[in-house]
Design a protein around this nucleic acid. Structure first.
Length: 475
DNA sequence: CGGATTTGACCAGCGC
DNA sequence: GCGCTGGTCAAATCCG
């Protein structure tokens, strides 16, 4: 593999550009990415996120400020003054002035309402931030308590003090310990444990889900692999059942013990579609080129993690939240009932050029356009936890049903579950604001613990949080 | 010669 | 228990 080519983040290419031109750039003589050949990659997540998430050249939409919601009243005197200049129109001006005042009243009312909404959103955001911080502080402690002998014996016993995860084990149990999430706590001398057994187990389950959460990206491409900014090494290839195209396995080689892997396979039904499935979170600083994908994958993992709520809430929330963006043709589907909970980002839809033609358009959640391999149980628009497999057989929930009551009730339900809110915010922020730069990355870094996503584009060094994670995992 | 890829073999999980 | 399948390993091979 041409390493330099894989890491070619120096020539960021917006997705739109690629999908418009990829057929011209492709060398289709070696679609399998043969040994030593020059690999051609799709640069979906090029280094400069801003180019990938909106039309090139269009300015970044400014954040909504409180002042923006204030009605500019300077227009009123001007209109009045003009009325005074014309004595004949004075009577009509008086009438129009009343109309203007009535309008003013309405606008003031709306202004107050918008201010209230803004205040509410701001308060909610701050509350969520506080909650997240509290969770992140609790997590290492609970983790170490779990590792002290309350979890499965084998898993606890396999936790090496040295954390020498350089060699990825063959067994899945060994693989689990390689996760940066699992390494967050590290060995401890604490001896208080038993009261935390149930909680520790729940946490372990949560983290197991997080480890196994996958993000699948579907995109039209003749290239054998997409350039996501990371460095990958191919370690295997298999023929998957039901698909004549082989599935290639890659692992991240940007750090020795990075647990992130990806599978690349062509869609059997449309071989121009490349399906790249990511698993795990990076335990090392990422180059800017890789931030978008890392953000997406970990945010999706967070989102899936939030799916551990009761099934009724899942379907309800999905129905309430998802339809609001169902009109878009760019897609993200959620499947927690598959062998591994999976989020699929579908970049293959829309007009020629697909989502790339409107890279700034927010991806939405929708019905899966095509059945995905390894997601045979997927049944449509829903979020379901693995333990609630009954949801998988539920008929697809209708899209576009979000009436006002539904939205209101959904807002209440979301508010009642901070975990979901945080994860959802992270996912949406990541997906929509893929190019929103630092704010997005800061969001993500806070929402998806253990992921090196809070490096901004200008600074690839680890933050304190990520450094802790990296150290505990690799040392 | 070092590093990446290929490919057959091995292992674990799952369903029957 | 057996077979199937997915995932991984590691020796062999290839390439720059």
């Amino acid at each position: 593999m041409d390493k330099g080519h894989l890491l070619d983040a120096s020539s960021p290419r917006p997705l739109a550009c690629f999908l418009d031109n990829h057929s011209r750039r492709m060398s289709a003589d070696d679609p399998g990415g043969g040994r030593g050949r020059r690999s051609v990659e799709v640069d979906f997540f090029s280094g400069h996120n801003k180019t990938t998430s909106r039309v090139a050249g269009s300015p970044e939409p400014p954040p909504i400020k409180e002042e923006d919601l204030t009605i500019n009243m300077q227009l009123l005197p001007a209109a009045t003054q003009k009325g005074e200049e014309d004595d004949d129109d004075r009577a009509s001006a008086s009438g129009s002035q009343q109309q203007l005042q009535a309008e003013l009243g309405r606008m003031n009312e709306e202004n107050q309402r918008l201010r209230g909404m803004l205040a509410q959103v701001t308060a909610s955001y701050q509350a969520l931030q506080m909650h997240l911080m509290a969770l992140m502080q609790q997590q290492p402690r609970k983790q170490e308590q779990f590792l002290l002998g309350l979890g499965p014996v084998a898993e606890a016993a396999e936790q090496p003090a040295s954390n020498s995860s350089t060699e990825v084990g063959r067994s899945s149990s060994k693989e689990k310990e390689d996760s940066p999430d699992a390494a967050g706590g590290g060995p401890s001398s604490s001896k208080q444990a038993l009261p935390w057994a149930a909680e520790g187990r729940q946490l372990a389950d949560q983290q197991a889900s997080m480890r196994k959460a996958r993000v699948s990206v579907r995109a039209r491409s003749e290239a054998p692999i997409i350039a996501d900014g990371c460095q990958w090494r191919k370690y295997g290839q298999k023929m998957a059942k039901g698909n004549p195209c082989p599935r290639a396995y890659y692992r991240c080689t940007m750090a020795n013990a990075c647990p992130v892997r990806k599978q690349v396979q062509r869609c059997a039904e449309d071989r121009s579609i490349l399906i790249t499935t990511y698993e795990g979170t990076h335990n090392h600083p990422l180059p800017p080129a890789a931030m978008a994908m890392a953000s997406t994958t970990s945010a999706a993992a967070s989102m899936l993690l939030s799916g551990s709520m009761p099934s009724a809430d899942n379907s309800f929330l999905a129905r309430a939240v998802l339809p609001s963006c169902s009109s878009s043709s760019s897609m993200a589907t959620i499947s927690a009932s598959a062998p591994f909970p999976t989020v699929t980002l579908d970049l293959t839809h829309g007009p020629p050029g697909g989502a790339a033609a409107r890279p700034h358009a927010p991806p939405s959640f929708h019905m899966p356009p095509l059945p995905l391999y390894n997601q045979s149980k997927f049944s449509g628009l829903h979020m379901s936890s693995p333990q609630n497999s009954s949801d998988a057989t539920r008929p697809p929930i209708g899209i576009g049903l979000a009436d006002a009551d539904t939205v209101t009730a959904a807002a209440a339900a979301i508010t009642a579950d901070p975990n979901f809110t945080v994860a959802l915010a992270a996912a949406i922020t990541s997906i929509i604001g893929g190019g929103a730069g630092q704010q997005q990355q800061q969001h993500h870094g806070q929402a998806a613990a253990g992921v090196n996503a809070n490096n901004n584009n200008n600074n690839v060094t680890s933050s304190s949080n990520n450094t802790a994670t990296t150290n505990s995992d690799t040392q």
